[in-house]
């Protein structure tokens, strides 16, 4: 049975480990920055969507609506292709930035819906009490509504981050070297000559990342819940 010897070979060969860590690094960079971009974009879009309708908000609201509809209605892979081969089809443009922007924009649409739902879930009476005391709507939002909304949206945002990390595996479709691609390259090499081992190892890497993230979110949730009871 050379299964274990193959695993040993994978972990002991510097070249293979370098490939995996190179892929891991890219997966990590894309996930983190896309998540940050997504959270920022999603929050802004959510604010625009829930803002009171007025003449000045008409255009931003329309833009946000189109953004949400298009991004959530088309496949991620297609969005990535459009970013890579149409929008940023510039020679020498760093692929990793293309990927971060594509995933960030995609994630933003889902985050926006989660944040919107979270804010709507806070009782309207909270806003009314703030406004009745003479606090402007911005202050009421920041000090009263958003802190309560965050608690409600953390689980949904966590799911979105997990989905995002796994979804970044499609960057290999535009020829980017990520964790998944590393497995494919290693498995396709003459020396390893097996997809099973590298694919399994890489799967464990993904599992570990997602599991760590899940634990982190659980801890945050617990902390936040402790805050309003203590």
């Amino acid at each position: 049975m050379d299964f274990f010897s193959k695993i040993f070979e994978l972990f002991s060969t510097g070249k293979y480990m370098e490939s995996i860590f190179e892929g891991l690094k890219n997966t990590f960079i894309i996930s983190v920055f896309a998540a940050l971009l997504g959270l920022l974009l999603g929050t802004v879009v959510a604010m625009v969507t829930i803002a009171r309708p007025s003449a000045a908000m008409k255009l931003p609201k329309a833009i946000c609506k189109i953004y949400l509809t298009v991004i959530r209605g088309t496949p991620m892979a297609l969005q990535l292709f459009i970013m890579a081969y149409v929008v940023f089809a510039i020679r020498g443009f760093p692929q990793i930035i293309t990927a971060i922007i594509a995933f960030g924009i995609n994630s933003g649409a889902y985050v926006a819906e989660n944040v919107r739902a979270g804010i709507m879930s806070v009782d309207i009476g909270q806003t009314e009490a703030g406004r009745a005391l003479g606090l402007p709507s911005r202050v009421t939002m920041l000090k009263i509504v958003i802190p309560q909304a965050i608690k409600n949206v953390i689980p949904a945002i966590g799911n979105e981050l997990i989905a995002l990390i796994k979804e970044t595996s499609i960057v290999s479709m535009i020829g980017m070297y990520d964790l998944t691609f590393a497995a494919k390259v290693i498995g396709g090499g003459n020396n390893m000559a097996s997809y099973l081992i590298p694919m399994t190892v890489v799967a464990l890497f993904y599992l570990a990342i997602v599991y760590a993230l899940t634990l982190g979110i659980k801890i945050i949730e617990k902390r936040l819940r402790a805050g309003d009871k203590n």
Binding site: D123, Q126, A129, G130, R131, L135, Q148
Partner: peptide, 21 residues
């Protein structure tokens, strides 16, 4: 309106205390 609301207190049926404070 905010300046004037500072001088007009309001008490609600559902109390509406800020839950996070």
């Amino acid at each position: 309106i905010n300046i004037h609301r500072e001088k007009i207190g309001m008490v609600f049926q559902q109390f509406n205390l800020f839950n996070n404070k």
